[in-house]
């Protein structure tokens, strides 16, 4: 009985797993076959790389990759600097009004940048950042979520280390850089993985603030390339999709444990 239920469990779990990756598997299948072979599911049909060639020539992918790469880098650097400073202030510096300001910051957790698209668009235009990568990244830099995370990480640093460093003659900035930041490394890593995968995948806001191929990230480029109006067939869309998710997907498969840990660490507060 016990063995039977275990086999049933395995069967159910694996069946669901297969269903779950089926969309990805079919996209792989389609990407490497001509359209007619792809939709006929002829298992013996010839593999081809033509779809990738056609897709690659159909849009400035290299540019899109570069833009996405630069975008996630800009966002991450901005987030690191801003959340480190603010997180440190909330964790280790006492000043009047701290609790009230902290609650104000936490409010932003629920004012999703996605919802404020209209006014944020106006703001970015006012700052002259429309159609620039900085404009795409800026609304995400002062992330309340990141500030919260850094505050938690810095709070767990033993005060003795802080005092020891001060006795050695470190100023507050030295203490921050030499004591707090190194000790919070796991938090930085987790935050970085979550941030990079979020912004690699972000779509709506970049769609609104970019207006040319010189700034469009991959997701926006992919949506334009695959738009039904353009009449691109399924094999070529699949090839383009596989191409654009490949870097993140490979990174995920290689560093799976770290990714899962990162999502957990940043999710459970």
């Amino acid at each position: 009985m016990n063995r039977l239920s275990r086999h049933l469990d395995s069967f159910g779990a694996i069946l669901l797993a297969v269903i779950w990756i089926a969309p990805l598997l079919f996209a792989f299948w389609a990407a490497f076959h001509s359209t007619t072979d792809a939709v006929n599911f002829n298992l013996t049909s010839r593999l081809t790389l033509d779809n990738f060639r056609v897709a690659w020539d159909g849009a400035p992918w290299l540019r899109y990759f570069m833009n996405t790469f630069l975008l996630v880098t800009i966002v991450l650097i901005g987030q690191f600097i801003i959340t480190t400073l603010a997180g440190f202030a909330f964790a280790q510096v006492s000043f009047p009004g701290k609790d009230f300001i902290f609650i104000l910051v936490l409010l932003q957790l629920f004012i999703l940048p996605e919802v404020l698209i209209v006014e944020n668009y106006a703001m970015v235009s006012r700052l002259g950042l429309f159609d620039s990568l900085l404009g795409v990244g800026m609304p995400y830099m002062a992330s309340a979520f990141g500030i919260f995370l850094m505050r938690q990480a810095f709070k767990s640093v033993p005060i003795e280390l802080d005092e020891a460093a001060r006795i050695e003659g470190c100023g507050w900035f030295g203490v921050l850089l030499k004591v707090y930041v190194p000790l919070a490394k796991p938090t930085y890593l987790a935050y970085a993985l979550v941030s990079v995968s979020t912004h690699w995948n972000n779509f709506l806001w970049p769609l609104i603030v970019t207006n040319s191929d010189k700034t469009r990230p991959l997701t926006v480029g992919l949506s334009i390339f695959g738009a039904p109006e353009n009449g691109v067939d399924i094999s070529i869309i699949s090839a383009a999709t596989i191409m654009s998710v490949a870097p993140l997907l490979i990174a995920f498969l290689v560093f799976q444990r770290q990714f899962v840990q990162a999502f957990l660490r940043t999710g459970i507060k």
Partner: peptide
């Protein structure tokens, strides 16, 4: 096959919604 099962369940999380939509279009 626990490793495979976990990976399969989690993989859609790292894909952009736009890419997911393209996959499901098929």
């Amino acid at each position: 096959a626990k490793g495979f099962v976990r990976t399969a369940y989690f993989t859609p999380t790292v894909l952009p919604m736009i890419a997911a939509a393209n996959l499901w279009l098929f």
